[in-house]
């Protein structure tokens, strides 16, 4: 039985979730979008996610704190950090703290799809090499 890749997207700008969720659905990723970090963390506490994509600069909570709490709860979860205020220092900090990858805004949905596909493969899901052309609506765990 095929299993859906579950992704939580956290960005305090609602437009980000609106634009990225349909784009990620193209590679068989089920996305839940949040704009409130606390609500997102509550959901993470209640449900397992394969991948978490989080912004860094948010009013209520730092994305790096979200990263820490996600990995504390589920070390296997791949956390991808996105930000419009990327610096080498922040990127290195995120990677040192266990982030899977780092992406700077502005970016194209396909840039994120590529990273999400890589994260999914690292988790054992089969994802087509070129996610843009992927017609697979579901990930298929290899293990």
């Amino acid at each position: 039985m095929k299993q859906q890749i579950r992704l939580l997207l956290l960005d305090d700008e609602p437009i980000v979730g609106k634009r990225l969720a349909p784009a990620l659905a193209k590679i068989g990723v089920e996305t839940e979008s949040f704009t409130d970090p606390e609500a997102a963390l509550q959901q993470i506490g209640e449900k397992d996610f394969d991948i978490v994509v989080t912004d860094i600069r948010m009013d209520k909570m730092d994305g790096l704190e979200v990263l820490r709490r996600v990995l504390q709860k589920s070390p296997r979860t791949k956390v991808i950090v996105i930000t419009g205020y990327a610096t080498l220092e922040i990127a290195r900090e995120a990677l040192a703290k266990g982030a899977f990858d780092f992406i700077a805004k502005p970016f194209k949905p396909n840039d994120l799809r590529n990273i999400v596909a890589r994260a999914a493969r690292a988790l054992g899901y089969k994802v087509k090499e070129n996610p843009v052309d992927s017609s697979s609506a579901h990930g298929d765990p290899e293990t």
């Binding site: 930000t83 419009g84 205020y85 990327a86 610096t87 080498l88 990127a91 290195r92 700077a104 502005p106």
Partner: peptide, 20 residues
């Protein structure tokens, strides 16, 4: 200055990540 540059739309973060 970096924040001000980013706020005016200059993609400084893209430059930084390109180096990384």
């Amino acid at each position: 200055i970096l924040d001000a540059a980013t706020d005016t739309g200059i993609a400084v973060g893209k430059l930084e990540v390109a180096v990384l």
